[in-house]
Structures are given as structure tokens and as C-alpha cells.
Computed example of a mutant assay.
Amino acid sequence: MTATKTIAAASGEGQFNAYYAEPEGSPKAAIIVIQEIFGVNAGIRRKCDTLAEAGYLAVAPDLFHKIAPGIEL
């Protein structure tokens, strides 16, 4: 299952989105996928999906949420 979820910032100030790709059944582990300068684009989402197919929970947070939320280049 894939989805974009909203996460509350640890500082308590605001929130940001992250792409989640969950495997069928229980995940082996969780992997944080760090985006390139291009944002959480199709390539990053595909990488998460591939990891989920291999049995991992993959999460790609939007690291640019404060300056350009949701940017995809």
C-alpha cells in the first residue's frame, strides 16, 4: 500500500508530508529514503515501492517542506 501521510514536526511547529510504501504483511524493517535535490519525485516514490515489494516499510519525507512544500523537479 502506498500513500502520502502528514507527520507532525517533532518541534511541535507545523507538519510535513512523507510518501509511505508499506509491504504486504509485517515489514522486515523500516527504511527512510532521503530525497535528492529534485524532491520526492516519481523516482524516489518508485524506489520506496521497490523496497516495499522486498518487504520493507519505506518512508520518504519531504525535506524541503519549509521552503518549497511538495516540490518535484
Rank of each mutant, 00 (worst) to 15 (best):
G43I: 03
T6P: 04
K47Y: 13
I31W: 08
N17P: 10
T2P: 09
S26P: 06
K47S: 12
P69V: 00
K5D: 01
P61D: 06
R45V: 08
Q35I: 04
N17T: 15
V33P: 00
G12M: 03
I31M: 13
A21V: 01
A8V: 13
A10Y: 12
A18W: 10
E22C: 08
A8T: 14
G25T: 08
F16A: 03
Y56Q: 11
P69C: 03
K5A: 08
A18T: 10
P23G: 02
S11M: 03
N41W: 01
P61S: 08
I34A: 09
N17Y: 09
A60K: 01
I32G: 15
C48N: 05
P27C: 09
P23Q: 02
L57C: 06
A52Y: 00
Y20L: 11
G43D: 14
I7C: 06
A3H: 13
F38D: 01
L63G: 12
P27E: 06
A18N: 11
E36A: 03
I7W: 04
R45Y: 07
D62Y: 04
A30N: 15
D49Y: 05
Q35Y: 02
I44W: 07
N41I: 06
F16K: 04
E22S: 14
I7R: 03
L63K: 12
H65N: 11
A30S: 15
A9W: 10
E53A: 13
A9H: 12
A18R: 08
K5R: 13
C48G: 07
K28L: 15
I7F: 10
Q15L: 06
A52H: 02
F38C: 04
T50F: 08
V59I: 14
N41M: 05
T50E: 10
A29C: 12
Y19M: 04
Y19H: 08
A8D: 14
I34H: 14
N17S: 14
A18L: 14
T50G: 08
T2A: 13
E22Q: 13
P23M: 03
A42V: 12
M1T: 10
E24A: 12
I31R: 10
I34V: 14
K47I: 13
F64V: 02
L51T: 02
E22T: 13
E22L: 14
G43P: 05
I32Y: 15
E22V: 09
S11V: 01
A68T: 13
A8L: 14
T2G: 10
I37N: 00
L57K: 07
Y56V: 05
E36G: 01
